[in-house]
Structures are given as structure tokens and as C-alpha cells.
Amino acid sequence: MSVLRTHHLAPGEPLIELSHVARRFTKKLDRGRSFQDLFIRFFRHPRSTSDDFWPLRDFSLTVNSGDCIGVIGPNGSGKSTLLKLITGILPPTHGDVIVRGRVSSLLELGAGFQPDLTGRENIYLNGSIYGLNHAEMTKRLEPIIDYAGLGDFIDTPVKHYSSGMHVRLGFAIAIHTDPDLLLVDEVLAVGDVIFQNRCMESIYRFRH
């Protein structure tokens, strides 16, 4: 198992290279570390290895700059796991992962929002979670506020935002980080129709 992540694009090299990647989960994640669990297990049959669950097995994928790839499948087929392997949230159990360039993920919008801080303060905080520094965020501040369409609410603590405003701000930040690689999960199912259209537009523009 090996993982290589660089923040710089290498011209001519693919953005993502996954080779023979596999990821194992244990169905009963709570593996009973307490004495109580150990005691109970003492009187039970030992668990079999069928507890293992492999959403991804021997999975290889190469994504080049300009590619737009959709992954479809039923619940539990490993779509989110794949995205988590690419972002680096989870390490692969087997196989190699190479990711080049800056990754921005819309796995959950506004995941890093601090409810007590204002929208503006959260833009800086969220930007730094994506790996952007203060100056880079200052440059993007106005476009983000415009895009999110929050107006005066930008200086209101985020805990008072409606869920739509929350998502709009989250999306606005993520799309303005100018990622080399944009990962989108099912998050766009939220927000009203007008905003959804705007999101799709941005994503189409991102492709070009």
C-alpha cells in the first residue's frame, strides 16, 4: 500500500492514478475494546472473517486533466469510499494511490463551519481547510459573497443561517478554491432549483 499526494500539477501526468486499490471495512466497527466486551467475547464463538466488507477490490482508474467522470451504482457499492480514498480521508488497504494537484471536495458542504463565527470569518476558516492561505482567500472574498448571494447576512453568525444559505456558502467557497480536481458527492440535491442550476453551470464551466 502506498499513497503519493502532491499539490503541484505535473504536465502530461494524470491527475489521479489508482492501481489495484482495495479497501476493507469491518462490519462491526466497534471492535469491543472495553473489558466488558472482552469478557463477553470470551464466552462467544470467535468471529469469522466474513465480518470483513470490501466495497472496493482490485480497482484501477486513471483520470487525466479535463476528464469528467461520473460514478453510478446502488447504495453501498463504494462510491463514497472511492472519493474518500482520492481525497486522502481513508488510506487504501491494498494498492497504490497517486493524486496530483489541489483537490476540492463537495463531500459535505460547510463541514468545517464554526457556528459561532460569521459567514465572512468562516470563508477564511473554510478556505484554509482546503489549503488556501489568507491572501488567496482575500482575493476570492468578494466573488464568494456575490456567488452565495448572502448580502448583509455575510456578517451574521453561521448558526443563524437557513440550511439553504449554509449550503450556498459552502458551495461558493468550494467552487472558488480553483481546484485542479473537483469531487462532487450527492450534496447538490439540496438547495432550491435556481441555485442547483447555478451549481451545474459552475461545474460545466469548471470542465472547460
Binding site: 481525497t87 480521508i89 483537490v103 463541514a111
Partner: peptide
Amino acid sequence: GNLIKKVYF
């Protein structure tokens, strides 16, 4: 935990 599960840093 919520942040760790969603974003890499």
C-alpha cells in the same frame, strides 16, 4: 470527527 470524515488536511 465530522470534519475529519469529510475533508482531508
